[in-house]
């Protein structure tokens, strides 16, 4: 296992990028920040599979590939099963001694957007985690199907307008709550489950390294602000992520072995969720007087969730 030093940013910056530029992700997209960070936090050989989504279509624009590692282009739902197959094959060939380099350390990673993780690829992911393959699944959660024009997914939070759950005179956007994917994956008994954010680069790199080191299926949900569908200026990607983690809309925490919960980032001053929502165009309609109660409802839910996380961290259950 060859992990790179993440003691400080200067040391971290001596690693060599294995994710090349000239992919066609939008300017200011957080997907590539997260992917770069994952690939920079280890020197090991990586085998990566991607579910269909922004990341897959943008990094493999024929005749170009942006990946300097083995990368599997696969269907919408089955990156988790493709990567578990690759992992099983690697294990078997290692046992037989038929690999080119039998001692080389190889890590298996699957990327998926929130659509392919929460909805379409859920069954495949659930199966792969139940089978206990040694891989890391990273969900790039931008809360909608951004690749196809911003349809609602089950990761879209309540009150957000999307192209299939539009806000207007009779509707405030999506009416259902977001699925708590981290709790669901922890309930599968995965040895390492976490929710991380790209603005807290150190917590994120540490989480990635821990997930890659841990034997068994690991799941990481990462916040990936989408400047196109969340409707903010591309330059504010990190600023919006700051607001998301400081307003506790996206608390940064990990769950080890399904019971040991650690909160990785506690904001010094917790800001109101209004500030986070006000910075994005997709929540604009909630500031009208008739939909104001949705903001209060979201704030109440966030407070309850934060209280629950803190109690769980203390109780170790």
């Amino acid at each position: 296992m060859a992990t790179t030093s993440i003691k400080n940013l200067k040391e971290f910056s001596t690693t060599n990028d294995r994710f090349e530029g000239a992919h066609t992700l939008c300017p200011g997209c957080a997907h590539s920040m997260i992917v770069r960070e994952l690939m920079n936090c280890t020197d090991d050989n990586l085998v990566i599979g991607s579910n269909t989504g922004c990341l897959e279509v943008s990094t493999a624009v024929y005749p170009f590939t942006s990946w300097d590692t083995s990368w599997i282009h696969i269907g919408f739902e089955n990156a988790a099963s493709a990567i578990s197959g690759a992992e099983a094959m690697h294990k078997a060939r290692k046992k037989k001694g038929t690999l080119k380099d039998n001692d080389a350390s190889v890590k298996f990673v699957a990327f998926g957007g929130d659509g392919s993780t929460f909805d379409i690829g859920f069954q495949w992911l659930s199966g792969a985690i139940e089978r206990g393959h040694d891989f890391t699944y990273i969900c790039l959660d931008n809360e909608n199907y951004a690749n196809t024009g911003g349809q609602r997914s089950s990761a879209t939070p309540i009150g957000s307008t999307t192209s299939t759950a539009q806000a207007g005179t009779h509707s405030y956007g999506k009416k259902e709550k977001k699925k708590d994917i981290v709790a669901i994956m922890a309930a599968h008994g995965a040895p390492y489950v976490a929710q991380l954010a790209p603005n807290k680069w150190k917590a994120m790199a540490k989480g990635f390294q821990k997930a890659l080191e841990t034997e068994g299926p690991c799941f990481i949900n990462t916040v990936s602000p989408c400047c196109t569908e969340w409707r903010f200026d591309p330059k504010d990607t990190i600023g919006i992520t700051d607001l998301a983690t400081d307003s506790l809309m996206f608390p940064v925490y990990e769950i080890i072995d399904g019971h040991e919960l650690n909160i990785l980032y506690r904001p010094k001053t917790v800001i109101k969720v209004e500030e986070y929502m006000g910075a994005q165009g997709r929540y604009k309609h909630l500031f009208k007087p008739e939909y104001r109660h949705i903001i209060d409802k979201v704030q109440k839910d966030i407070d309850e969730q934060w209280d629950y996380l803190q109690r769980r961290e203390e109780a170790r259950i």
Partner: peptide, 29 residues
């Protein structure tokens, strides 16, 4: 370097060297 989405910040030996204008999309991050 850590937040550039396009791997366009050239950094060598802990020093910032410059910008890769072939891959930069001008996102201002």
């Amino acid at each position: 370097w850590v937040w550039c989405p396009d791997s366009s910040i050239l950094s060598r030996d802990k020093q910032m060297m410059g910008i890769d204008y072939d891959h930069c999309k001008g996102c201002q991050v």
